[in-house]
Computed example of a mutant assay.
Amino acid sequence: MSAHPPVPRAVLDGIPAYVPKPPQPPATGTSYRLFLNENPCPPLPSALAAVSRAAQRTNLYPGIFPDELTDALARRLDVPLSHVVTGPGSVGIYQQIGQAMLSPGDEVVYAWPSFEAYPIVVRMAGAVPVEVPLSDAAHDLEAMAAAITPRTAMVLLCEPNNPTGTAVGAAELKRFLDRVPEHVTVVLDEAYFEFHRGPDAPDGVELHRDRPNLVVLRTFSKAYGLAGLRVGYGVAHPRIAEALRKCAVPCGVSRIAEQAALAALDAEDELLRQVAGITAERERLRAALGARGWTLPPSGTNFLWLPLGEDAAPVAAALERTGLLVRAFPGTGLRITVGAPEANDLLITALEGIRSDR
């Protein structure tokens, strides 16, 4: 054998794996997955029927791009077809962005903690992460603007933020975007767009129309309940959109995923009623925990943030023993997905017991 086997790129040594260690369920009893921000509702019957029909053609490759879905999204969003990009979840599009828009040594500004893919995408491209601490669990847009230098190539902004669920609002976001130099790409992640509605909720697609440097990402994983099929989409002006398509994995969105997404779009009114129910559960859960002495920031997502500092890991472990699997950010807090009512009721009871023991 060779004494000098192939060696992976050195930059990978400093990149964390994107897959966080999932909590382990208890040995017996029911467990609830409250750590991946999944939709607790099963897919709609129309989506399942579309999956079944599409599965009968899995001996054939899907299109290089999901053209039928791209066309439907362009019409739904009222944007030119050339503005729409797709990928296997928004995470897949992030990888396309890193390949297409970043070069070694570029600086990328983003808040922290925020979406865990950010440092991976940035370092994979050989770029330099510039992490700006949150302020009261929310983006500090003033500090992020101040962090932009002549070396800045990109700003990554999750609105509302993952893992804290906080939102900055439309007016503040517009002021920030107006301060970003035109040559700096801004990626606005709206994975939780459907959960954050109201007069001050931004609409990235509308914002992108007169901002050629703005890329907007959305997904079918959360509100549409298709996380297991991996289909996301983005909106960008043609020059960037074409570059992202060049970096996409051919046939990266399966025919099954495309047809399920189309069915979900057709049933959007029904799905948005589900979203309203999840949002109501979120507010019920937040109010119940607040009444029991826990402090949680407002959320514009399908999860809540419990800022616990050094207590995050032990509280997560205690919840796991009751069958509640939450996402711990050691030294910072817990991200807790809004689950079905029975899971949320169990969470209220478990946290009440934990608080009384502290």
Score class of each variant (00 low, 15 high):
A3K: 12
V7F: 05
V7W: 09
R9M: 06
G14T: 07
I15P: 00
P22F: 07
Q24Y: 03
P25K: 07
S31P: 04
R33G: 11
R33H: 13
R33Q: 14
L34P: 03
E38T: 14
P40N: 14
P45K: 11
R53T: 07
A55L: 03
L60I: 08
Y61F: 12
P62N: 13
L69P: 00
A72D: 08
A74I: 03
A74L: 01
R75E: 15
D78F: 07
L81Q: 11
V85A: 02
T86S: 11
S90T: 13
G92K: 05
I93G: 02
Q95W: 09
Q95D: 09
Q99E: 02
M101C: 02
M101Q: 00
P113H: 08
F115S: 13
P119Q: 09
P119M: 13
V122W: 05
A125N: 01
G126W: 05
V130M: 10
P133W: 07
P133M: 07
L134A: 09
H139E: 07
D140I: 06
E142M: 08
A143S: 12
P150M: 15
R151P: 00
T152D: 09
T152Q: 05
C158L: 00
A167E: 09
V168G: 02
A170G: 02
L177E: 10
L177W: 08
R179Y: 06
L188Q: 01
D189I: 02
Y192V: 01
F193R: 15
H196Y: 14
R197K: 07
A201P: 02
H208V: 12
D210G: 03
D210E: 15
N213M: 00
V216H: 03
L217C: 01
Y224R: 11
A227L: 11
G228I: 04
L229K: 08
V231S: 12
H237L: 06
H237G: 10
I240Y: 01
I240S: 01
A241G: 06
K246L: 09
P250E: 12
G252R: 09
R255L: 14
I256V: 15
E258G: 10
A264N: 05
L265H: 03
D266V: 04
D266S: 13
R273L: 14
A276E: 14
G277R: 15
E283F: 08
L289D: 08
L289V: 03
G293A: 09
W294N: 06
P297S: 10
P297E: 12
T301K: 09
L306C: 10
A318H: 07
A318C: 07
L319E: 01
R321Y: 01
T322L: 11
L325C: 03
V326G: 00
V326A: 06
V326D: 06
R327W: 04
F329W: 14
G331D: 05
T332S: 14
G333E: 11
G333T: 01
L334K: 02
R335P: 00
I336R: 06
E342T: 10
E342L: 11
A343Q: 13
A343Y: 12
N344D: 15
I348P: 00
I348Y: 13
T349M: 07
G353W: 02
R355H: 11
D357E: 15
